[in-house]
Amino acid sequence: MKFLARRLLYSLAILLAISFLSFLMLQWAPGDYFEAMRMNPRVSAQTVEVLRAQYGANRTFAARYVTWMGSLARGDLGVSFAYGTPVGPLLWPRARNTLLLTGSSMILSWLMAVPLGIWSAARKGALLDRFFSFATSTVLAVPDLLLFLLLLLLAVRTGWFPAGGMVSSNFDDLSFWQKAGDVAIHFALPALGLAVVALPLLLRHVRAAMIEVLNAPFIRAARGHGIPPWRLLWRYALPAASNPLISLLGLSIATMLSASLIVEVILSWPGLGPLMIQAILARDVNVVIGVVMLSSVFLLAGNLIADVLLFASDPRIRVE
């Protein structure tokens, strides 16, 4: 338990440092939100000054950081200049959408990667295995951007899927099940795209981990005892190979979140990605910091979950 508590504390310290550093860095950023407003001839210099004072943009760095920390404690994360509302309520629905997308495509890609990887490892060197290794290296070489654009093209050309967004315009009139179906059909393309992006790397790792275990003496012994191959693979080899895969689970969250940023922009999924791009272009500093913090929370939480799983599955770590 001590191990986990230490990891948790360390993650919190990292989050704190990230908040401070991103705050500091975006202070230096030349040209703030009000700069653009000052260029606007229809907004008087006085108005800009009043707004600056209202948002506290002219106070010292330390004062602003302390205020921001206070608002972080309330879950507000400061005020968005562009929307004029606290950042927190802007972020939560977006974060939920991003989590929905990345979470389910991660489950999808793991569900594909584990059986395929085991299959491929069990027939190492066979035609099937070589086909998989060819396919994974090809898919790895396809730029994410191109894949997502092609999915968008599919949607636009065939009309089978909606070309972006999360819900249809008549969403509010639908019954509960129709709503679920509506979200599901909007969700299909981005989730599929993300799963395809993540799959090759997972497949490679599952295969590598399984091959290593399958060479171990205890597997040969088990085979000698007449354990059927199916049971051998799933009950004997897979648990032994699971350690590196659990660590990979934590790592793959980072890849997923990055890829999700692009797919959200291209297929206009209302997640954190489009919000962040808009905030960068509008110099809406607090929103940028909020998104950065949230993405880091997801990543660190993913790593913590992986740690907990490792802790549960591997007695050696518990002894340490």
Binding site: I14, M25, P30, G31, A254, L261, I280, S296, L300
Partner: peptide, 18 residues
Amino acid sequence: ALPWLYLLFAVRAAMPLH
């Protein structure tokens, strides 16, 4: 501790736009 594309955009956000 940051997904790298988010990190990339965060650093980009601290640099001048135009």
